[in-house]
Simulated assay, not measured.
Amino acid sequence: MKSKDLRNVVLCKHQPGDHPRKFFRDLNGSLSLDTIERWVEMINETGSIHLSKSPGSPRTASSKTTIRKVKQRLIRKKRVSVRKLARELNISATSAHRILTDDLGCYAYKFVKEPAITDQQKVNRKKFATWIQRTFRKEDTRKILFSDEKYFDVDGVYNSQNDQIWAINRTEADK
């Protein structure tokens, strides 16, 4: 239950002469007894419950300026690492992730790499397949082993899991 709903419950249940402990028992500990007593005192003084500030700690990392900075960064560059973004803005990685997902409504989509096959390569592959079909008998083709090429990188291992694009939907990520 939200704080506003709880305030309305306490306001409706308050009758002159009722003790705050009765509300505490009725709410099954949803609110502390101190809070209920403070709210009842406000009702007795002003007739309503008006909090001077919103409950909970203030949002420091997820301020409007930080959200605007993250949004501008996404406009410039879609491929953003949450850790690097957090380091640049001097906030925690959790706060940066929360800004991207909750405040901006973005999701992390994996970058899809598709090999660009030219028309000439398609023609060559078709020629090779027909050559194999005409030149070799069926039992001879079973003895041929085809394998994919593997590229080894001296700089380190490429991890496709880290290659992500932050976007609102898949079509925007594909662009």
Score class of each variant (00 low, 15 high):
residue 148 D to G: 01
residue 129 A to K: 05
residue 148 D to E: 01
residue 127 K to H: 03
residue 144 I to P: 00
residue 146 F to N: 02
residue 140 D to W: 05
residue 123 V to Q: 12
residue 145 L to Y: 10
residue 130 T to W: 00
residue 129 A to N: 03
residue 136 F to L: 14
residue 149 E to F: 05
residue 125 R to N: 14
residue 132 I to C: 09
residue 128 F to M: 15
residue 137 R to C: 10
residue 129 A to T: 01
residue 124 N to A: 11
residue 144 I to R: 05
residue 125 R to D: 06
residue 147 S to V: 05
residue 132 I to D: 07
residue 143 K to R: 13
residue 126 K to H: 13
residue 126 K to W: 15
residue 128 F to A: 14
residue 149 E to G: 14
residue 122 K to G: 15
residue 144 I to G: 02
residue 131 W to L: 11
residue 146 F to G: 03
residue 126 K to Y: 11
residue 143 K to F: 04
residue 122 K to A: 14
residue 128 F to H: 10
residue 146 F to M: 04
residue 149 E to K: 15
residue 136 F to R: 12
residue 146 F to K: 05
residue 150 K to P: 00
residue 126 K to T: 09
residue 145 L to H: 12
residue 136 F to A: 14
residue 122 K to F: 02
residue 128 F to R: 13
residue 127 K to M: 07
residue 150 K to V: 07
residue 127 K to Q: 07
residue 150 K to Y: 04
residue 122 K to V: 06
residue 131 W to S: 08
residue 144 I to H: 07
residue 138 K to P: 13
residue 148 D to Q: 02
residue 137 R to W: 08
residue 131 W to Y: 10
residue 146 F to L: 03
residue 138 K to V: 12
residue 150 K to G: 00
residue 130 T to A: 02
residue 125 R to I: 06
residue 128 F to I: 08
residue 123 V to L: 09
residue 122 K to M: 08
residue 136 F to M: 11
residue 140 D to P: 06
residue 132 I to K: 09
residue 135 T to L: 11
residue 137 R to Y: 10
residue 133 Q to F: 01
residue 145 L to K: 14
residue 126 K to P: 01
residue 130 T to H: 05
residue 130 T to I: 06
residue 149 E to W: 02
residue 146 F to Y: 03
residue 128 F to S: 09
residue 133 Q to D: 07
residue 137 R to M: 12
residue 138 K to F: 12
residue 127 K to E: 04
residue 129 A to F: 01
residue 137 R to N: 13
residue 123 V to M: 10
residue 134 R to I: 04
residue 123 V to F: 05
residue 145 L to T: 11
residue 133 Q to G: 02
residue 144 I to Q: 04
